[in-house]
Design a binder for these strands. Structure first.
Lengths: 312, 312
DNA sequence: TTGTACGCGTTATCAA
DNA sequence: TTGATAACGCGTACAA
């Protein structure tokens, strides 16, 4: 491997002068610069990024914790992160977590070991408060509203669009509203925001028997509908946490030749468009871009992003 | 920042002994190990990954070049890569390319600068032959059949499933088969494999006016169908490069209240399931897993992966 | 079993 | 404007 010392020796100048040429710094005469560049070209020399990172004390890498890449929430948010990272000259490290708190802690430790400069949690199981001590080692960013906890965050403002959606439901006089939610209400910001918006609009708690949690996919949506069906719960409206999930819900009724309730999805996915159901666009790409800017220290604090209810 | 030297100084042992404890090596007495581990715990010391990488000469990072993350081909293949990387203790660096050959070359240069140990091209625009010289700097892996070129590769064997699909078409006596392909035939392995399989089954070249390239998305599929429609090309069957794309094709006819041709998709996506169209499952997760094993040097050579035609 | 000292390749400080 | 040299933090022959 050819090093900066080889270039120095062969060109007849010192490593510091070569380093200055490499980094386009001043205090190098045009002639010397030209000579050194010629040797660099001849030797086909390139600097070693790891040595450079060690010397500079930063990696230009940002870690992104992702429970499962197949969910549209994550692909959208990761797209936004990647685009912003590329523009800023950063590389993105994908860190799969499967919602495992132990694995999540492992990534915080990697941050501490300087494996990357910043860490974005697109979602997580561990308590946000446990992340705070790690801020001293690099930027830590979450992608939901962290409430009172002092941590950088970028997230969609679900309240307004959820309330708009439920007012739409209310105007149509649906009586039995099924809520098909991703994870338990105490750990999922999405789920709790849904419940809160429901209460804001309807003035009452949602019917507990009509709430299904742990629903993340088309198949889960199908199973949730099956649960409603076999237990004779007969919702006349179902609010799902994604268009694909809503598609699974509808398929259950279709397979059983039953009249389906009205359904609403989220994420503005192709399946929702095909089925002609109302949805909510959370603009997750913008959330991702904002999260990255926080992670590289180009911005600070909390970044709420506007979301849109799309009636159909 | 506390370093290994601090641990050595405070514990009263040398850095090499501390290093041995850190790396669970032999030749350390239990008592010394315990003393040192106590100091490590007290100081809350963790080793610096960058320094470790520099010293060891490798990063445990694998770069993955991805033109656009939203396409199902890439999300599936990346999922396979991530799962295998996680299992092997590697981190995955996502490298967006937008099919730009200059950007692709930039990532090969990053490999040369030791930013990662291996590089996987899920797809690319630059010629494969241009990658060969970079093999000296680390593993370079492509995700299509590289033909005679000596480079590691993991890819779906498209031939058998494409031929099975076209035989299905043939048995149904379709006469005017539209081919809706991703990129130009000379740069896309997918496109050329489609043409070859068509010729194998039908014994003739596909009708040039019925071939559309550059079709990557639902919207592109819609536009391709529009092209057929406005030019009175009247295909009676359309072979699309994805179920979502096939959905776009069908939507054009639906919007115009026209009788659609029969369509076939690929990727076994939700949209294809909803529309009840035949498709091809390429098992891209397995391809990704194989690609990673090649990239970390756990395997060598070419890894063809079997794909399945799914009639419906 | 433990310690010394050097190498990894670069950047940054300070002197010349 | 250029150069010598000390960091950066860790791993590892080799010596003891």
């Amino acid at each position: 491997m050819t090093t900066i010392r080889d270039v120095a020796r062969i060109s007849g100048y010192s490593v510091s002068t070569v380093s200055r040429v490499l980094n386009h710094k001043n205090y190098v005469s045009d002639e010397v610069r030209k000579n050194i560049q010629k040797v660099i070209a001849e030797l086909d020399y390139v600097p070693n990024d790891v040595a450079r990172d060690l010397s500079r004390g930063r990696t230009m890498n940002i870690g992104v914790v992702v429970p499962n890449i197949d969910h549209p929430y994550y692909t959208d948010i990761v797209r936004g992160i990647m685009a912003a990272a590329f523009a800023a000259g950063y590389n993105v490290l994908m860190l799969p977590s499967k919602y495992d708190a132990v694995v999540e802690h492992g990534y915080l430790d990697q941050l501490r070991r300087h494996a990357f400069d910043g860490l974005i949690f697109t979602s997580h199981t561990m308590p946000v408060a446990d992340m705070v001590p790690y801020k001293q080692y690099g930027e830590v960013v979450v992608c939901h509203d962290p409430g009172q906890i002092d941590i950088s965050a970028a997230f969609t403002e679900r309240g307004p669009s959820y309330r708009a959606a439920f007012r739409w439901v209310q105007r149509r006089h649906y009586r039995r509203v099924g809520l098909v939610l991703p994870r338990d209400i105490d750990i999922s910001a999405t789920s709790s925001a849904t419940i809160t918006a429901y209460k804001d609009v309807f003035g009452v708690e949602p019917e507990p028997s009509l709430i299904r949690t742990g629903v993340m996919s088309y198949d889960d949506g199908y199973a949730a509908a099956e649960y409603y069906g076999t237990n004779n719960l007969a919702p006349d409206f179902i609010f799902a946490n994604g268009d694909d999930i809503a598609a699974g819900v509808l398929q259950y009724y279709r397979d059983g030749h039953l009249t389906p309730p009205t359904v609403m999805g989220q994420e503005n996915q192709l399946s929702g468009q095909l089925l002609g159901i109302p949805t909510i666009d959370h603009h997750f790409r913008d959330v991702g871009a904002a999260a990255l800017r926080l992670a590289i220290g180009a911005a600070e604090g909390q970044f709420p992003v506007h979301s849109d209810f799309i009636p159909r």
